Amino acid sequence: MISITEPSFDETEVEMVRAVLASKWVTQGPMTERFEKLIAENQKAAFALACTSCTAALHLATMALGLGPEDEVIVPAFTWITSAHSAEYVGAKAVFADIDLATFNIDPKALEAAITPRTKAVVSVHLFGLAAPMDEIRAICAPRGIRIIEDAACAIATTYKGEPVGAIGDLGCFSFHPRKVVTTGEGGAVTTNDPELAAALRSLRNHGTTGLPSAEIEPHGPWTMGTFNRIGFNLRLSDIQAAVGVAQMSKLKALVADRRATAQRYTQMLREVNDLVLPVAGEVEGHTYQSYVVRLVEGGRRRRNAVMSAMALAEMQSRPGTHAVHRLGYYRNKYGLKAEQFPNACAAEDTTITLPIVPFMRHSDQERVVHVIRQALKG
């Protein structure tokens, strides 16, 4: 079986986890701080706060911005579902905007058309490791006071015009799920350059703690407990997971370089297959290829499924790109959305295939994948 992807582990991760277990400090301790520092340095952000998942990171971001009922948050219609859920978690409304089929990222014109007086934020997704058009997004949002949450779940080490994503908007949200370039099993992080947002995030992920009470009320001692002046959650990352993350971050440059090389080989081998559109649009110099996603030009969902079936028979994993979120039951039923409202998102869901791209993938395995796809398209 050729997996769609897999983590790259060795003795480095084992030794880091062993060190944490020996220390007996296994949650929200020095290893988590070390992991956060590595993320912040890599993304050129002033602050990075680790948490349990990117879903948690997005939830923390919407809470830190104070979003709530009566607010609207614009989300690309083609993305993983929690890009939209993060707005709904806090009682705000997810409002969809269509994508640019060439990049699978939000179309700035569609973003601008979706803005209303209630729009308070946009979730700008860097889908599959390709940066969204941040200059256009900022030009639209900044004059209107609309906050930007970068959904960088797929985009650790992705750059936009030479700058790492995650600190271009107000907040950046990262995933360390096993399908990502860097993994901690499950895990996430929020980045920001705003100290007030960082303080809110730190409190919200730790039950809503707001520091120690005033010493003027009672002298501090072993009896002193923290204050809790806001509602919060337990979304802290364990030091055991952070240890895996620290080991993974030491390999990040090599993992990204390898992934880009594998993607370039796919592009070279598939360049003359006229039935496919390859991921070659947008700021491709900064693309980290968390996924290598191709799109069928003709034949729609039925032909796409036939290609994926042929791959499965040849023992090769594949997946559609991701969801057209407005088609999913919760959003379709709650807001009365129709598929045709966001045609590019529907086309992307129906015609995309994520190809296997594992760390240090054998050239022969790539050749097998390409051969099966070519034969399936002929059939």
Rank of each mutant, 00 (worst) to 15 (best):
Q317W: 02
S86I: 06
A189M: 06
H323R: 04
D365H: 12
T55A: 12
F233R: 13
L171Y: 06
L313A: 15
T352K: 03
I240N: 01
A189T: 10
P356T: 06
V297S: 14
F9S: 04
I106A: 02
Q248F: 09
T351H: 02
D239F: 05
M269G: 06
L65T: 09
P343I: 07
I168K: 07
C346N: 10
A131L: 07
F174H: 09
F233A: 13
Q317N: 11
T192A: 10
A155P: 08
K44A: 15
T184G: 02
R265D: 02
L127Q: 11
K44C: 12
D100C: 11
A243S: 12
R118A: 15
A339S: 13
I217K: 11
R260F: 00
E196W: 12
G145F: 04
F9G: 03
C51L: 08
Q375G: 02
H220K: 08
F47G: 04
T288G: 09
V20H: 09
D151K: 03
M16L: 13
E36M: 03
L355D: 05
L212W: 05
A247D: 06
I4Y: 07
R259C: 10
G379Y: 01
T267W: 00
A102N: 13
E15Q: 14
L38S: 08
T322E: 13
C154H: 13
Q317H: 05
S364L: 13
F35K: 02
A153G: 15
C346I: 14
L235E: 10
D239Q: 12
G188D: 09
R301I: 10
V293T: 15
R205I: 15
A261Y: 05
P7D: 03
E340T: 06
A64N: 10
H177T: 11
N206P: 06
A84W: 00
V95A: 08
V20R: 09
K24Y: 05
V181K: 04
R205L: 14
H126L: 10
G187V: 11
V273P: 04
A198W: 07
D194P: 04
I148R: 03
T267I: 12
W25E: 04
R265Y: 14
I148L: 01
S23R: 12
T82N: 12
T79L: 01
T158E: 01
G187W: 07
P359E: 08
R304L: 12
V182H: 00
A261W: 00
L49Y: 04
F9C: 07
M308Q: 10
Q341L: 02
A310P: 04
L328P: 00
A376F: 03
P30S: 09
P108M: 05
L255F: 07
A345E: 06
T116Y: 05
D239W: 10
A345V: 05
S214L: 10
H323K: 09
T62S: 13
S83Q: 09
R259K: 12
E340Q: 11
A312L: 13
A314L: 01
H371D: 14
R179Y: 00
E72P: 02
C346M: 12
R295M: 15
I140S: 11
D275G: 01
R271Y: 09
T52W: 00
I146H: 02
Q268W: 05
L270C: 11
T5K: 03
E272D: 15
T267F: 00
V293L: 10
